[in-house]
Design a protein around this nucleic acid. Sequence first.
DNA 1: ATTTAAAGATACTATTTGGTATGTTTTTAG
DNA 2: CTAAAAACATACCAAATAGTATCTTTAAAT
Lengths: 194, 194
Amino acid sequence: MSKSGETRNYIMQKSFDLIYQKGYQATSIDDIISTTNVTKGAFFYHFKSKEQMGLGLISELLYPNLYDKMIKPLENSTDPVTDLYKMMEMLLNDKGFFNVEYGCPAINLIEEMSPISNLFKTALSKLVSTWHDAIVSAVRSAQSTALVKPHVSPEEVAVMIISGYGGVRTLGKVMGRDAYKTYLSGLKSYLIKL
Amino acid sequence: MSKSGETRNYIMQKSFDLIYQKGYQATSIDDIISTTNVTKGAFFYHFKSKEQMGLGLISELLYPNLYDKMIKPLENSTDPVTDLYKMMEMLLNDKGFFNVEYGCPAINLIEEMSPISNLFKTALSKLVSTWHDAIVSAVRSAQSTALVKPHVSPEEVAVMIISGYGGVRTLGKVMGRDAYKTYLSGLKSYLIKL
DNA sequence: ATTTAAAGATACTATTTGGTATGTTTTTAG
DNA sequence: CTAAAAACATACCAAATAGTATCTTTAAAT
């Protein structure tokens, strides 16, 4: 990677961390340049505005990372119900990318930015609908092998799981990891009955 | 009510609306005084700081309102499972206090403020644990009348319902009211199987 | 090695921020 | 009615904000 490319990536990674912890609007460019030791000139050379950097963060960092964690585990699955649980378990137990205190960076951005920026909303809703569709496919696939009852609505399951995930990330912010643990056991009961 | 009390309430109500729509940190005191036509002198006469006003908002406006909507419907219930569904239905269909675009003011504040302010976190976690305990009681009560199977964990159900609620409020921000509708039908299936 | 463009550094700006100091006007109590 | 306190108004402030203008340095190609 070129030196310039490295600088750009470094800015993005550090910005991602700061925004994850403090929120997008609460993270100032001065915050970013002081924690990166990159100058303002360099920042605005690589990004024409804070907004463009934020949108880049979503498409270049958030989306690929979450695609691996949320969608990939559901692809080519022979036992989708088990895989849905495992996906959630891996997400909630991943202490590298996530921190209970700060929740999920995608949920945080949806909460903060969707109501006030259509650009952010559009970028973030792509992630949500990709996940949604992957869950729907997984449930349909489970129905085709009779692992899930035919009368179950895959869309309903998708909304239940996505909502559960988003909500437990919020709940974790005030209740800590206990919320994750309890949710996982609740999810297991839920999935078994499908 | 005294004139002074009215001014205070008016500031709080308008601040609540602004914060609900834009977020706490993104709402400036100048925003508040310009939409209320109250001067900065009046604002700082009634509240020693923006933070105190925000905390007052939680205890004086948010808590009482949500207590009525979340906890009261579960009190002295003869059919707690039905009442849990109705509580959620009323919450999600309430277009007076809530707006799909902006989600739930409590969830928004938890998301934004919990990680960066212990005062906010403490105030908000009271609301969450009160709701949690009310749901646990309702499920226990349903078990005592054999409306819910005895092996079901009430705490698990509480976390599932609170998470589902918080998550669907987030999901609604990007997907609109369809998310609410689908979630409600998923919740019904879930509750029936308890 | 020299030129040229890319990459980065520095200093500035106009606006907005939460908050204060110091007023003036209303209420209220005697 | 009058004194005093409560309620509100105005003008300010230092810090922080996103962004720009203008440099200097570094890298690449000839």
